[in-house]
Computed example of a mutant assay.
Amino acid sequence: MFPLNTPIQLSHIKLKNPFIRSAVHSFLGTEDGFMTNEEYTMYDTLSRNHLALIISGHCCVLSGGLANKEQIRIDNDNYIAQFSKAADLIHKNNCLFIPQISHAGPRAVDTDDLYDVTECEIKKNRYAKRLSIEQIQIIKKAFIDAAYRLKQAKVDGIQLHAAHSYLLSRFIDESFNTRTDEYGGSIENRFRLCTEIIKGIKKTCGKDFAVAIKINNDTNADNQKYAADMQYVIKKCQQLDVEFIEWSGVDFINQPRTSSLYYFDRINSFAKLSHLPMSIVGGIKSMADIEKVLSSNIKLISLGRSLICEPDILTKFAQGKTTKSSCLACNRCFAIPHLHKNIRCILHWKKLRKQQ
């Protein structure tokens, strides 16, 4: 039986089932960081279709850390009201809402003055300078302040974006982090900024405020060493009362279209190490994929591109209308919004063109 009514109790929030909408940049925001009616409609549609939790696309916490020109922002109080509106829409449909907060680091598009964990050359002849301790403290405070604003908006918690080569992930991964101070070297030091942010959020927003984190399960460098590092991260997250870890990967965008459950074996091995709930994202395309996850040690399932293609895919699964998503895993959802405003999937564009 499809588990739409199988609740999952986390540390501070209860999910009505294991299904999460993973953070996906929508390309629907304005260039000054506000949600549009199309964004609200997206949230309403998603939450009406059996998801237990929606994680927003990553939201910028600080000027100089913007990842996309139309990225939603939460770096000052003017942005609080839009999250309240989104939370109200989602809550009416018996779904929870956790915004993801992020700093783009050297991938920022709103500054030419780029900074990274350590000094480095960026693609296209761009260079990033090494962050000072003082700058790290400013960034840490920005994350904590963003979480406090979101608590005022009455969301259900936040997720730290520590994956996909954004700034926090670059601190964690020693292929980027070659610092020799308290933020570099050992995994304890490399995870220190995340630790301090989580502690600061819990202190400012209250111990019961839910904090989740998204992390890469792998690296482009020494994967065996990285896996050992993640054992520390898992234990530390449990100590910090993290709600759940959502595991992604460095190469999800390059996976073959026919692949599924890209990182299942490693994430399942991580899930054996701890009672801390974990979610898997990446290549979950079918009922068979879902059944495999639910029969493993992994408690939660995060969906991304399949929900861009079919926001009602869980409803279709539950009603027996399909056993597999129509998503092509073509990754054109990263490009087509730039070509056709408010269109997020190539199949939607083809359908619209055919109708016209």
Score class of each variant (00 low, 15 high):
76 N>A: 01
101 I>S: 00
96 L>Q: 11
71 Q>R: 02
77 D>W: 03
63 S>D: 15
86 A>L: 12
66 L>I: 06
61 V>N: 09
62 L>H: 13
95 C>G: 06
75 D>H: 04
68 N>H: 15
66 L>S: 00
100 Q>M: 14
88 D>K: 14
86 A>H: 08
61 V>T: 07
86 A>D: 12
76 N>V: 00
88 D>V: 05
71 Q>S: 13
98 I>P: 08
91 H>A: 06
90 I>E: 14
77 D>C: 01
99 P>D: 06
103 H>C: 03
64 G>C: 04
102 S>A: 13
80 I>Y: 03
70 E>V: 08
64 G>D: 03
100 Q>T: 13
66 L>E: 07
66 L>N: 07
74 I>F: 03
86 A>W: 05
87 A>H: 10
103 H>W: 01
76 N>K: 00
91 H>P: 07
93 N>W: 05
96 L>K: 07
80 I>M: 09
69 K>P: 07
102 S>T: 14
69 K>D: 14
88 D>N: 14
78 N>S: 13
81 A>N: 13
68 N>I: 02
67 A>V: 02
82 Q>C: 03
81 A>Q: 15
73 R>C: 04
75 D>G: 01
82 Q>R: 02
86 A>F: 05
82 Q>N: 01
68 N>D: 14
101 I>D: 07
92 K>P: 14
84 S>L: 12
75 D>N: 05
80 I>L: 02
79 Y>R: 03
98 I>S: 06
97 F>G: 07
65 G>T: 07
100 Q>E: 15
79 Y>D: 02
67 A>Y: 12
61 V>M: 03
102 S>V: 11
71 Q>E: 15
81 A>L: 10
93 N>P: 11
66 L>G: 00
77 D>H: 03
67 A>L: 06
69 K>L: 12
96 L>C: 08
65 G>K: 02
61 V>L: 04
73 R>A: 02
92 K>D: 13
89 L>F: 15
83 F>G: 01
95 C>D: 08
74 I>G: 01
73 R>K: 06
91 H>V: 04
70 E>F: 02
88 D>L: 12
103 H>T: 04
100 Q>F: 06
64 G>P: 10
83 F>E: 00
74 I>A: 04
74 I>V: 10
80 I>T: 11
102 S>R: 11
93 N>V: 04
61 V>C: 08
88 D>E: 12
73 R>S: 00
96 L>N: 09
78 N>I: 08
98 I>Y: 08
76 N>Y: 01
64 G>K: 00
75 D>V: 00
72 I>F: 08
67 A>W: 07
103 H>K: 05
81 A>H: 12
80 I>F: 06
97 F>P: 11
65 G>D: 11
91 H>S: 05
72 I>K: 00
96 L>V: 04
75 D>T: 01
79 Y>W: 05
101 I>G: 04
70 E>K: 09
97 F>N: 05
73 R>V: 00
102 S>Q: 14
101 I>P: 01
71 Q>M: 07
84 S>H: 15
75 D>Y: 04
74 I>C: 05
85 K>V: 13
84 S>M: 11
62 L>G: 08
79 Y>H: 02
98 I>G: 06
86 A>N: 11
92 K>N: 14
100 Q>Y: 12
103 H>Y: 03
89 L>G: 11
79 Y>Q: 07
93 N>A: 07
63 S>V: 14
61 V>E: 05
87 A>E: 08
87 A>K: 10
62 L>M: 10
81 A>K: 14
75 D>E: 09
